[in-house]
Design a protein around this nucleic acid. Sequence first.
DNA 1: CTAAGTGCAAAGTCTTTGCAGCGCA
DNA 2: TGCGCTGCAAAGACTTTGCACTTAG
Lengths: 147, 147
Amino acid sequence: MKSQKTRFETIIQKLRDNGHKITPQRIAIVKIIAKSIGHPSVEDIYHQIKIDFPTMSLATVYRNIVLIKSLGEVLELGFPDGSNRYDGNKPYPHPHVICIKCKKIVDPDLDSLDNMTKEVEEETNFKILNHRLDFFGICSNCLAKKV
Amino acid sequence: MKSQKTRFETIIQKLRDNGHKITPQRIAIVKIIAKSIGHPSVEDIYHQIKIDFPTMSLATVYRNIVLIKSLGEVLELGFPDGSNRYDGNKPYPHPHVICIKCKKIVDPDLDSLDNMTKEVEEETNFKILNHRLDFFGICSNCLAKKV
DNA sequence: CTAAGTGCAAAGTCTTTGCAGCGCA
DNA sequence: TGCGCTGCAAAGACTTTGCACTTAG
């Protein structure tokens, strides 16, 4: 059985490799980013850390996200209302399914996407580098408890 | 040959139907939104109108976009960097192909999307209402003139 | 005529930045 | 020990809002 590095270890290693110091604040941020449970916002990350780390500053969260983004280890999901959510667990482009009621974000498995990229390249003559695919809807949970 | 309403007429009509006044400023904004050539930003719209309409205020552009959005007659495309672009020509969800060099936005024709929505619904048990699909790349033009 | 719309400027968000002090390597 | 990082507060970018004036219907 091959030992597999966790996302947390991978990101910390990459920070080290690029000459960045590993501070407690940074560790706390990477820990959350690496899991990205529910795809947290900056505020989510900030508040979560603030519990154990009362001096943590919002600026530090922002700075570290910019840094980790620049290393390609976190995916930023911006929405029209200006909110941003982060995914450091799967930092490569992949589809998201977003519940418009409870804001939960889920990752579906879709395989038809590669074909689509080719289709687009052929039709538009673009060299496609990247994509973003979101589905918006209502999750089974919120559907059930519709008041 | 059936007479087809232009997007401009449709939006103006919808404004009227909902009891909104048709002001010159509003006409100017709708004119640009209806065409949405290159998918303009708020600034684009503002500056374009400012030429013939020096008193036009940014606030008015924002207010009218909010209004037209609420009528479902313009699609707002928010990007991670915080910029927003608008499409009042095709105000329903559809894929976009964006050149990361010249910021041009093109609409490709893709037919495999409906299947994908069904696939997602089956897998996640969400009721999908909406989606957003963007491809990022480099257009043939920018590819050609790569320095 | 009169409620809706406009322009201006002020107030909000959210995010970034400058700077002094702190702490990891 | 030294440079990078943090925390704070101030500055920025973008968007919304309050208010008095204007105007479409």
